[in-house]
């Protein structure tokens, strides 16, 4: 895998045996792989010289870290207060029904992942979701369905060209 070749760059950035770099390292690994593979967590543990159990304990504590690959489109549903009072739960349910997965899961074809976030800070256009960091605000069930169709078409097209 070509990805493997980049690894020394990540580890070289951080001094060995310095546990305070742990989270930075994990963030870099996740950026590289999209998630935290077991083998990399073991590598991280060796680098900072702490038990693997501690690396895993830290990784599972924070929302950011994933242990499975993510979908091509990561849909973040804002569950902030402003979004909640504007109906973001309904948006989430619709999304879950449409894609047939629950929040935190990825579709079988690795196309979509649904995540919930505490607040993306775009309260002015609540309820809001972000698909791969592209914001979509002021959603209703209907506009969401339309939006989703667009992405599904796009992913189908990508498949054909690929």
């Amino acid at each position: 895998m070509t990805k493997q070749q980049h690894m020394p760059e990540i580890y070289g950035k951080y001094p060995k045996k310095d546990a305070s770099c742990l989270i930075d390292l994990l963030q870099d690994v996740q950026e590289q792989f999209g998630y935290l593979p077991d083998s990399e967590m073991q590598q991280v543990a060796k680098h900072v010289d702490i038990p693997v159990s501690r690396v895993y304990g830290v990784a599972t504590f924070y929302n950011q870290f994933r242990f499975q690959p993510l979908g091509k489109y990561v849909i973040k549903v804002c569950r902030g207060t402003a979004c909640h009072v504007q109906g973001s739960l309904g948006i989430l349910t619709t999304l879950e029904n449409e894609l047939g997965i629950k929040a935190g899961q990825t579709t079988k074809d690795l196309m979509f992942t649904i995540e919930t976030v505490a607040c993306i800070g775009a309260c002015s256009i609540a309820p809001v979701i972000a698909i791969n960091d592209e914001f979509h605000g002021g959603l209703t069930t209907k506009s969401l369905q339309k939006l989703l169709r667009g992405y599904q078409k796009r992913s189908a097209k990508d498949e054909v060209t690929a």
Binding site: I50, V52, S53, V55, Y56, G57, F61
Partner: peptide, 17 residues
């Protein structure tokens, strides 16, 4: 360090690596 806390909140547990 065979075991440590994993996950968070109500899902917290003590588990091997």
């Amino acid at each position: 360090g065979a075991i440590d806390f994993v996950h968070r909140g109500f899902k917290s547990a003590v588990a091997p690596a």
